[in-house]
Design a protein around this nucleic acid. Structure first.
Lengths: 164, 164
DNA sequence: CAGAACTTTCAATAAATATTGAAAATAATA
DNA sequence: TATTATTTTCAATATTTATTGAAAGTTCTG
């Protein structure tokens, strides 16, 4: 199979993975396209490749930059902007985990923490649920923070240790 | 704050968490309602509490059962069905992780594995990306499998060790 | 500074997804 | 078996989310 076909399939797969996890399909497709491209691409090239409108391309490129997954790249002699994605899968995972935690998990954890402190404990089972959730998420948050601060090798080694 | 108000807020929070992670809001709200209820609830009680239609309630209860998050409960002398959700947060997390892996992650990993085997390696950078992804996901899959097989204490202890 | 190249915005529109409600199916009771 | 209670299904509808494209904004260049 030609790399080009493989890339197309990869873009499809990554796009549908994103959309089943609440990230819009175009955004993850652009990400996949940039990950699999050896060179930085312009908005026009992205539009062309994925058959999407300029507005759509622009918005989703901005979102990717906002997530820290894509960077602008200036090319000497060129007037337009080019974009490239990081290709270190550990770094990508770290970035995605970190952003999702910040955007979608933390607000909920905050609510749970507050409820735990303020509810009147008239239903002991519910009180216990809040307590457990708090403990559980504290542990997970801790792990994720370590993951985010760690370098690739440190975390990899720890994981290997964990599963053996 | 009364437990009842706290539960309402919890249901809201859990519902929006679900919807930002690609799970429909009603499904996660029902789950939260059942988690926070000391007794099993009937379809009618769920409809009433969340102000949703019978069809909607029915479909999402089925989905929750399908995910292994909710169980039917027969109450002697009652003709209708009652539903209850497990309340062990480790078990809930394990179940959700396991289902999401099976439904949404595995198919993509299969594609990546296949591409890695069959693409013609004409773009070495792309080949390296596939290889890294494969390695990364193999490690994660391994960790998740352990998590799923483990009992709560085992995994908890391992995590504590990992982060210290 | 004028004009060209390029980027951003956003109201209109399209597409995807969720919800309703009533009819059909099923199960329980007498 | 006929009646009633309960659950399931699904076409119609509503809601949410994504996309377009053209106008407005910006930046660069001669």
């Amino acid at each position: 199979m030609k790399s080009n076909e493989a890339k197309k399939e990869f873009i499809q797969a990554w796009g549908s993975l994103g959309s089943s996890w609440g990230i819009n399909r175009t955004m993850s497709s652009i990400h996949a396209l940039l990950m699999s491209s050896p060179k930085a691409l312009s908005t026009e090239e992205i539009m062309e490749e994925l058959q999407i409108s300029r507005g759509n391309a622009n918005m989703n490129i901005r979102a990717l930059i906002d997530w820290g997954l894509v960077k602008k790249r200036f090319i000497p002699g060129e007037r337009k902007e080019f974009f490239e994605a990081g290709k270190d899968i550990w770094e990508i995972a770290r970035q995605i985990a970190s952003e999702r935690k910040r955007r979608e998990l933390s607000p909920v954890l905050e609510v749970i923490g507050r409820l735990k402190e303020t509810e009147d404990q008239s239903d002991p089972e519910f009180t216990a649920l809040l307590k457990d959730m708090h403990e559980f998420t504290a542990t997970l948050t801790n792990v994720m923070d370590r993951f985010q601060q760690s370098d690739r090798n440190w975390f990899f080694k720890k994981l290997i240790k964990l599963i053996s």
